[in-house]
Each structure stands twice: as C-alpha cells, then as structure tokens.
Amino acid sequence: MVAVVDWAVIVASLAYAAWALVAVVRNRPPREPYVVGAGVVELLILIQAVVAVVLMIADGTPEETATFIGYLLMNLIIVPLGLFWALAEKSRWGTSVLVVAALVVPVLVVRMQQLWDAGAA
C-alpha cells in the first residue's frame, strides 16, 4: 500500500481518539466538532480504500485477499457506526464510543499493511 496514505489515516485516527479522550476526561458529550472530525478521518479512510483497490487491480492482490478486504470494509464502516452509536448518548460515555471506534482504525491499517507486505515479499 502507499505508506503516506496509511500513515495519514493512522495519525488522524489516533489524534481523533486522543481528542475525544480529552472530552471523556473532561466529562463532555459528543458535540458537532467531533462529527466534523469523524468526517475528516472517514474521508482519509475512503481515500486509503480507493488507493488499495486501485493497487489491487494494478499490481495484484495481497496475501489472504479475503481477510484484507474484510479489514478494508470494516475500516470503512467503523467510524460512521461509532458516530451513530455515540451521538444518541448525551454524556461522556457517548464520547468514549468515539475513542473506541477511532482506536480500531489504526489496528486495522497495521494489519492491512502486514498482509500487503507479506504478499509483496
């Protein structure tokens, strides 16, 4: 995969998780800035997914293609689902859902990188 795009997703999701965590500690419910932030993270994830699909078509598929695509799909839905679930809870616990959702993203990206590199070797 393209390292720059991967790292952008990882850094953005970790920063978002940290930002939401501050709100959890300060006992804040999920507010509009967090929706916008989630949108930014999701946009980067979308770009990464498109890049991955293009590369798969151009250069061939990675190791364990089905698993790779599974991670890719889960990465696409996790932030929107987390946001949906978080916004209904008007307390710090709603914001904490955003932290969890955002932390799943870098894990998935690293797993995708591992499968991709295994396929390239």
């Binding site: 364990e64 089905a66 698993t67 599974g70 799909l73 889960m74 839905i77 996790i78 689902l81 987390g82 679930w85 978080a86 209904a88 809870e89 307390s91 616990w93 709603g94 904490s96 859902v97 969890v100 959702a101 799943v104």
Partner: peptide
C-alpha cells in the same frame, strides 16, 4: 444501554463484527 453500557455495547459490537468477519473468511476460504 446507557451510560457505561453504551461503551460496553460498542466494544461488544466491534468484537461481533471482527469475529464474524474472521469466521466468515476462514470458513469460506
């Protein structure tokens, strides 16, 4: 489903998704 339960359910949902996807891939391939 409210308060800390919101977070608990979110984590359960992540595992439901992850385990389903993993099992699906394993059984299919």
């Amino acid at each position: 489903s409210s308060g800390p339960g919101r977070l608990l359910i979110a984590v359960y949902a992540v595992f439901a998704l992850a385990a389903s996807a993993r099992a699906g891939v394993q059984i299919a391939t």
